[in-house]
Design a protein around this nucleic acid. Structure first.
Lengths: 127, 127
DNA sequence: CGGGATCCCGCTAGATACTG
DNA sequence: CAGTATCTAGCGGGATCCCG
């Protein structure tokens, strides 16, 4: 069986053991990928991330960072200075995840115009 | 500027032109990736898809197929027989999208155990 | 067979206010 | 600075019924 077939087969397995339903669902939310990419260049602080990721709320940044930390993609380091400094960074696994993610985002960038055109055509047809 | 940098920079642009917020977010829902993978082997009918993708409801299969069709990933062909037959298939762009998607899902499969371990460790630490 | 229409609910995520 | 707590609207998504 080709490796593609093997992966595709697992897509349809039970919820608990399916890597798509279990891993992709985790980073498929509104902010996870944005945060991961915001950290590929190196560690950054909470408020710095917040101002770089336009539109994210304090609550969502905190929550998503916690989730990414729980998955093992991100580390959280507290420096007990005054005022306190908290730095977030990618783990080795997080950096590794960024590779296939970069392939996907890169694909999205290349096909963005084609997709927007497809949307227009579809909407025009269904008038 | 390195190509990674170029993509990453675009991540933080305004909503309309950001491929992550606009393309990746689109397929980040609960069923899109599952349906795309269900079609990589070839066209399939509505109810056949429904029984292969365990747990999906009629409504969500219809809705997600419509979205994928609108994006330009999927075609819908009606054969006016009795009873009617409707076949869904990937477009060339849809098949192309499956490649980076396969890379990501493959990564997820390989790191699934490590991630589950990370979750356990995190939950144990926060007792 | 392949949906459309409707109802309904839980959870996501935004806004706001407060804190060590 | 880096959060936590609370409230709430909106939407994703399931169940059910109906139809060509």
């Amino acid at each position: 069986m080709a490796p593609e077939q093997e992966v595709v087969r697992r897509v349809f397995e039970n919820t608990e053991e399916c890597p798509i339903r279990n891993v992709v669902a985790q980073i498929g939310d509104k902010w996870s990928v944005l945060i991961l990419f915001a950290l590929v260049d190196g560690a950054d602080r909470f408020n710095a991330l917040k101002s770089r990721i336009i539109g994210i709320s304090q609550r969502m940044l905190t929550r998503t960072l916690r989730d990414l930390e729980r998955e093992g993609y991100v580390t959280r380091t507290v420096y007990p200075e005054v005022p306190v400094r908290v730095e977030y960074a990618l783990t080795p696994m997080g950096r590794d995840l960024a590779k296939p993610l970069y392939q996907l985002v890169s694909w999205a960038g290349e096909h963005h115009e084609q997709i927007k055109q497809a949307r227009q055509d579809y909407d025009k047809r269904s008038d």
